[in-house]
Design a protein around this nucleic acid. Sequence first.
DNA 1: CCCATTTGCCTAAAGATTTTAGGCAAATGC
DNA 2: GCATTTGCCTAAAATCTTTAGGCAAATGGG
Lengths: 189, 189
Amino acid sequence: MVRAGLTTERLTRAGAELADEVGFDQVTVSALARRFDVKVASLYSHVKNSHDLKTRIALLALEELADRVADALAGRAGKDALAAFADAYRDYAREHPGRYDAARFRLDPDTAAASAGVRHAQMTRAILRGYDLTEPDQTHAVRMLGSVFHGYVSLELSGGFSHTAVDPQESWSWIVDSLDALLRSRTSG
Amino acid sequence: MVRAGLTTERLTRAGAELADEVGFDQVTVSALARRFDVKVASLYSHVKNSHDLKTRIALLALEELADRVADALAGRAGKDALAAFADAYRDYAREHPGRYDAARFRLDPDTAAASAGVRHAQMTRAILRGYDLTEPDQTHAVRMLGSVFHGYVSLELSGGFSHTAVDPQESWSWIVDSLDALLRSRTSG
DNA sequence: CCCATTTGCCTAAAGATTTTAGGCAAATGC
DNA sequence: GCATTTGCCTAAAATCTTTAGGCAAATGGG
């Protein structure tokens, strides 16, 4: 019999694609096996279990997202950087809703500490350098930015904004503008 | 044999409790049957299926949350109202993490339109009356508030803030203060 | 109070997913 | 060329979802 060429890598990648197609919570070992036209048990040589598979997809998504943000941030500062960060975040979520959900998968502390989530925090702090905040304000601001971006994207994805005529893109710009103004006003001094 | 006294109501309520104990995604028809010491099939006379059960739990959570917010808002305006709204929201999520997750369950549009989610939007707009915003700013602001609150609570629940020494309560207050200042600065005129 | 109807929970059964254990064949390397 | 490793398989058990049909308990009219 011809081998399918399964790999932890390929499974993770295919799982991410599957997530975007049918939703992260529908990503199942069985569905993935079907996609490779392989028996379910075969996957268990490459991933420990269902939770392990989901964790790997989550880590992949966090990496991708961090890469995008890093790209978007290159050479920018201040409000430019803030807007670029925000857009990179939102665009990724819209292009890859399943992966985005995956990125929100609850990781155990050790895994999270070794994940690209750390880069996200660093990049957020990098943006805030443009606003010259001192601790603990900087931490508050990191949390606020994370909350707004995550919250907005999450609500938009779940259709929460679809019943009003106002263009979500306009709201997004308005929010980014507002955050910029807010951070500037909080500048130490 | 003695009857267990199952009801759609009781199942929904028990499902909500179960969600708080083991997580919303672990709420299963089987687990609920065990809790009532009843055979699984018996539940299907009271709820259509697993999705129906989850939807009912979601609607219950939305109601409870809206009730709390309404209570918190009574007799308050301006920043007081904003802070009360924010705290009611966060407190509910911390006391009932499973129900809070349930409240984020994706409802189909018709169900959502008939849910307490509508009251949430109305109450948010009520708060904003204190800031005298004109459209479309008001809609942008509604979206921003929803995003921040949801995003913050969601990140806090998932342990996203646990690796820093800064007290989440302080960040929360800082954010509420900031939002208040922001909205005041956006007041029309 | 009796009996018919409704209601409530049950048994039975089929389909899906997760996970473990052990086997055979293909790839790899000396 | 052969031994080892690797990869996918069959088999099987546990859990969950859902449907169909049955018996007993509650209910209510005569």
